[in-house]
Design a protein around this nucleic acid. Structure first.
Lengths: 225, 225
DNA sequence: AAGTGGTCTAGACCACGTG
DNA sequence: ACGTGGTCTAGACCACTTG
C-alpha cells in the first residue's frame, strides 16, 4: 500500500509552496513538463495538479497554465451579512479593493424558497443578487430572499449557517467563471427573529480556489435575556 | 463549450439519488458497467464516480463497489466541544449508537502547538486524542492540546473555528481509513479566555463521505458585558 | 475464479490564449 | 503557429474481496 505517485509529487510542490520557494502568482510547469520531469504519464501529472488544486495551493487557468494561488489565506469570516457594506465583510482580510454590486427585484417564491421562508410557493418576495469582486476577479455571489415588507436584519435574533460543497447554479457558475462540473463552496444562511420567523435567507457561492478556510468566531458568554 | 460527459452522466445519478429512486446503501453499477452503459471509456466513468463522491452522494469501497451514501444529511453542529459527551455533540442528528473514546497523555509541545497556544516549544502540555465512531465506522478524530493545569473550557469566553479541507495527519488518516491522497474535512478550534489566552486548541478531522454540511448556529443578541 | 476500485501507460483531439 | 488545460480512448496490472 505505497503512496501513489501523484501524492508524492504533489507533496513536493506543496512543501515548496508553503515554504515560499514558489511564491504566489508563479507559474508551475505544465502538465506535460511535470509528467516528463517525474517520469510519469500526463494523466498522473494531471492528478497531481488536481490534488494541489483541491488543497487550495494552486489554481489552473484554461489554456494558460497552473499558478500558485495568490491568496492562499483569504478567509471568510462569519457572521457575514449579505446586506452590509463590503468593507465590514472582507475589510480586515484584504489590502485590495473589494467591490460589491446589488440588484433587487420582486419575484414569486419557488418551492425551495417558500420552504425556507415558511411561506407558500408563488407568494411574492424580495430577491437581491449580490456580487462581490476583488480587483477584476469574482469572489462571491449570492441570492438573498426576504418576505415583502421586511428589509434588513434588525429584527433577527439568530443566524444559522450551513457550509458545504456543491455544484453552483448556472447563474452562480457564470459569475464565478467556474467550469462545468467544478464544485464551489456553498453557504446557506437563515436569519430568524424571536418568533422563529425567517426574516432573510441567502445562498452564497464562493469559488473554491479563492478560499482556504471558513472562519467562525463566536462568544461563549450567555446572551442577555 | 458543451457539458463534459462525466458531468451529465453524474447529473443523472444525482437526480435519481436525490429523488430516492436509488436508496441509501444501494450499490451503483461498477465503473466498467457505467462506462459500457453510457458508451464512454472507463476513465470517464471513473470521473463520474469521483464527482458524485465529491458531492457526498456516494462512497466507494475498495474492491467492493460504489454505494449510495447511507447518511447524506449527517451534519456537524457547532459549537462542538471535544471534551463534552457524545450525545450532546451528535445526539440530535443521529439515531444510531455513537461512541467516543479518549486517551490523554502529557507531551512536549512541538512548534505548531506552541505557536497556537502561545507558549514555547518543548513546554509540556496535555494532549487528548478523541475518536468518535458510529456503529463501527469512524466519524471523527481529534487532537486536543491544553496548557498543564487547565482542564475543560470553563474559563473560555470565545471560540474560533476554521473549516477547511486538508490532507489528514497519518494518525488521523489511519483512524478514518482514508486512502493516501484523500482529503478530509478539517476543523481547527481555538478557545480563549477573557485575557486572550488560549486555553484549549483542537484539530479535528472528519471523513468527507460522512458529512454533507457543517452547520453553525449563533445568536445575534449582544453578550452581556 | 471472478469482479472490484485504484493506479498507470501512451497515445489523441479540441478550444482558446499568447506571442 | 504553438502551447495550454480539459477531455477522451483503449488498453494494462495490482491488491484485495466475494462467492
Amino acid at each position: 500500500m505505497a503512496e501513489p505517485a501523484y501524492v508524492s509529487i504533489a507533496s513536493g510542490y506543496a512543501r515548496r509552496i508553503r515554504s515560499g520557494e514558489l511564491p504566489a502568482g508563479m507559474q508551475l510547469p505544465s502538465v506535460a513538463e511535470i509528467a516528463e520531469q517525474n517520469g510519469v504519464s500526463p494523466i498522473v501529472a494531471r492528478k497531481t495538479v488536481e490534488l494541489l488544486q483541491n488543497l487550495g495551493l494552486v489554481r489552473t487557468v484554461q489554456r494558460r497554465g497552473v499558478f500558485v494561488t495568490s491568496r492562499p489565506n483569504l478567509v471568510r469570516v462569519s457572521p457575514e451579512h449579505q446586506m452590509q457594506d463590503a468593507e465590514t465583510t472582507f475589510g480586515n482580510e484584504s489590502d485590495k479593493k473589494i467591490r460589491v454590486e446589488r440588484e433587487t427585484e420582486e419575484v414569486e417564491a419557488d418551492e425551495d424558497v417558500a420552504n425556507v421562508l415558511g411561506i407558500s410557493p408563488g407568494v411574492r418576495v424580495t430577491r437581491t443578487v449580490t456580487r462581490g469582486m476583488e480587483d477584476r476577479r469574482a469572489i462571491s455571489i449570492s441570492d438573498t430572499y426576504q418576505p415583502l415588507g421586511i428589509s434588513g436584519i434588525a429584527s433577527a435574533e439568530d443566524l444559522e449557517e450551513a457550509v458545504s460543497e456543491a455544484l453552483p447554479s448556472p447563474a452562480h457558475a457564470e459569475w464565478l467563471k467556474t467550469s462545468p462540473g467544478d464544485l464551489a463552496w456553498s453557504v446557506e444562511q437563515k436569519f430568524t427573529d424571536s418568533a422563529g420567523r425567517v426574516v432573510m435567507a441567502s445562498k452564497i457561492s464562493y469559488p473554491r480556489d479563492r478560499y482556504a478556510k471558513f472562519v467562525f468566531r463566536m462568544s461563549l458568554k450567555p446572551a442577555e435575556e
